[in-house]
Design a protein around this nucleic acid. Structure first.
Lengths: 133, 133, 133, 133
DNA sequence: GTGGTCTAGACCACC
DNA sequence: GTGGTCTAGACCACA
């Protein structure tokens, strides 16, 4: 279901958060759909329960998913409408654009990257950043 | 000379690196220009010496600047032409675009952000992200 | 008869307990009145049998209701007079007031909330708390 | 600095959150005051690092505190002004009042409890709830 | 020194 | 079965 890169600079729980939000954004996960159980996902991805739990916990406090005690986690109704959520993502975008600009990339090159990402697979990985420093 | 935001989630030494590279990218710092000394910069920005030292160290190993022992640091000749440098920045851009897409922003909105950043001041801060984890 | 909110952070069996006690407190359920059967209630509320069973079990051991084997459950005589019961509720009240105070609400605001709840419908839900952890 | 009750039904990390918010609410912790380090607090309270970390993490995402990488955690500027924060606390208050009403307490008794709590010590414990069930 | 992440494994409550 | 909490201990990045 998800693809995580343990070597990425992006924390694993962030990768999970991002990819689930992305699946919701592209419509692959509809509101009230039940998500895989934390334990099942942890086992499938060879991760610890707590790592997945942290991702789900943050998704819940962001209002993206909701929990039914003893039953599981489900996609929320208006999962991605939180302005805080969008503003946070926009800020990360700005950070990325700043970095690109600092490295001498032109605005056109940056926009080409935007297109590439948006035309990528819906389940494309959120963070493959490998330090090349 | 530089503006750093201690509350940003972007590490301070990264902010320094980014802003110096940006000044080079826009031509404000020409090749062979001498940079302020680490101590001077640390004092001016109220930062720890080691923080600035780390930023300069990474700029040097990336080939962006060079050091003349006992004389100081200078902008390198073809400072931003390293492919590794550009690829690293491009990766960070991709991460940012992925996050934006995950949060439901459209490609058009993302490109608008690109334009906003590129039209901003050359010394614009690299990250004003308020912790909203 | 009862209204339960599966999304509340208050456990479902607690919601059942609270609402039955509330119906008793306001006189809607008189002593020796027969309660609906566990199976009927579970089916009506689309809940698991065990969930309702747990609520009734705790009400019985708290002395609020009594069971006649093979006949059903009935409201006890002095259903809500147990000091343990009242002390437990008072403690939950204190916890709630503490939380309100911690969040900066004034005593006047807290009392206004008290009035609002007591003027609400007798069958008002016990917890509509949306998970916002 | 804080008093936690490991036997309370209220999670330890919630007790930490509540008490820190309370200290802020009563003015004992002013904006930009540095909080004790996570490790120091954990050691002082004989708790695990992760337990305290979780409390601080949630306080940060609620905007109550902010973190300076490598330096520590500080009280935020407008720490308790978040409407979400207040609404969450109000909801917990409502839950408590509902429970009190369900147990047959009168509105006057409930208000007396409110007064008792607000007149308590500023550092009063947020949750001493011991199941008396 | 600080905070941040991850693993491993335990125990609890709820459905 | 589900999620929720806590402990213990490791490793990393940053200042």
């Amino acid at each position: 279901m998800l693809v995580i890169d343990p070597r990425s600079r992006v924390a694993i729980y962030e990768q999970i958060k991002n990819q689930i939000m992305e699946l919701i954004a592209v419509g692959a996960l509809q509101p009230h759909t039940q998500l895989p159980s934390i334990r099942a996902l942890a086992s499938e991805l060879s991760l610890n329960f707590n790592t997945v739990k942290k991702a789900f916990g943050e998704l819940e406090s962001a209002g993206v998913i909701y929990t039914l005690a003893g039953r599981g986690c489900f996609v929320a109704d208006r999962a991605l409408e939180s302005p805080a959520l969008r503003e946070k993502a926009a800020q990360q975008l700005r950070d990325g654009v700043q970095a690109a600009r600092a490295a001498g990339l032109s605005a056109e090159e940056a926009k080409r990257v935007v297109d590439e990402v948006y035309q990528g697979l819906p389940s494309g990985r959120a963070g493959e950043g490998d330090a090349a420093e």
